[in-house]
Computed example of a mutant assay.
Amino acid sequence: MDAAATAGPEGTVPEPGDPEVIGVRHGMFGVRGTGDTSGYGGLVRPVSLPGGTQPPYGGWFDGAIATLRAALGPVALEQALEKVIVFRGELTLHVHRAHLPLVARALRDDEGLRFELCLGVNGVHYPDDAGRELHAVYQLSSITHGYRLRVEVAAPDADPHIPSLFEIYPTTDWHERETYDFFGIVFDGHPSLTRITMPDDWRGHPQRKDYPLGGIPVEYKGARIPPPDQRRAYS
């Protein structure tokens, strides 16, 4: 959707609020010391997330939020939604994890919304986002109305549980398994939450940012990739 389609009543594109800074990144790829051969060792930049957007959101976004409010009730919607973000012409609903099935069912079943298809779920790991280090991001598509939106849910690393959407969107079956495999998010209620890519006895979750880069034995070859701080430096 282009900018004109999401423009507000005055023709301006709504912008999210002040970015939420959750940390500072030093260097790149997590490498420290002499193992850094990338040339980015001195890079310093903040890690930030878009802030919430205030209404009016523009385009069909306002109608979708109003319809969702009517479907759930104003109190339920306020309890369910953490924030709404309109960023680069896309709508994202940040939902508290306990209310995820309720919101997803309303988005699917309400005649004014009809987001019938879930295109999958992706995991994200923010180690510095204290209390909500793990995020699950669902992409929903309305075949009826031709719209798309994103639903994002967060969980703490110490309690990585999020309700499964398998009963509402069966297409999330393998996607939730993959997200569990690579990020360690536990989708409560999934009928068969097992690893889908890594061996069943694999330790850890490889796409988390605290997962070691190297130092893991390579099966069948007898070789070993040293961790970054033990590799040969060229500078």
Rank of each mutant, 00 (worst) to 15 (best):
S48G: 01
S48N: 09
L49I: 11
P50V: 14
P50N: 08
P50S: 08
P50Y: 08
P50I: 02
P50W: 10
G51D: 15
G51N: 07
G52S: 12
G52H: 05
G52K: 15
G52I: 05
G52P: 02
T53P: 00
T53E: 00
T53S: 06
T53K: 11
Q54A: 14
Q54Y: 02
P55Q: 13
P55C: 05
P55I: 03
P56S: 15
P56T: 01
Y57E: 01
Y57W: 12
Y57P: 00
Y57D: 02
G58R: 09
G58S: 10
G58P: 08
G58I: 05
G59M: 00
G59R: 07
G59E: 00
G59H: 00
G59W: 00
G59D: 00
W60R: 09
W60A: 05
W60Y: 11
F61L: 05
F61Q: 06
F61M: 11
F61H: 03
D62T: 00
D62H: 00
D62G: 00
D62L: 00
G63Q: 05
G63Y: 08
G63K: 09
G63E: 10
A64P: 07
A64K: 11
A64S: 11
A64F: 07
A64R: 06
I65D: 01
A66Q: 12
A66K: 15
T67D: 15
T67M: 06
T67N: 10
L68N: 12
L68Q: 10
L68S: 06
L68H: 07
L68I: 10
R69P: 04
R69S: 08
R69A: 02
R69M: 13
A70H: 14
A70I: 03
A70V: 07
A71N: 06
A71P: 03
A71D: 13
L72N: 01
L72P: 02
L72M: 10
G73D: 09
G73C: 13
P74W: 11
P74R: 09
P74A: 11
P74T: 13
V75I: 15
V75L: 06
V75R: 14
A76G: 01
A76E: 09
L77G: 10
L77Y: 03
L77E: 14
L77F: 07
L77D: 14
E78M: 13
E78G: 04
Q79F: 09
Q79R: 15
Q79P: 02
Q79L: 09
A80K: 13
A80F: 09
L81F: 02
L81K: 04
L81Y: 06
E82K: 07
E82D: 15
E82Q: 14
E82R: 14
K83A: 10
K83D: 05
V84T: 03
V84S: 08
I85G: 01
I85R: 13
I85H: 03
V86N: 00
V86A: 03
V86Q: 09
V86D: 04
V86F: 04
V86I: 12
V86C: 07
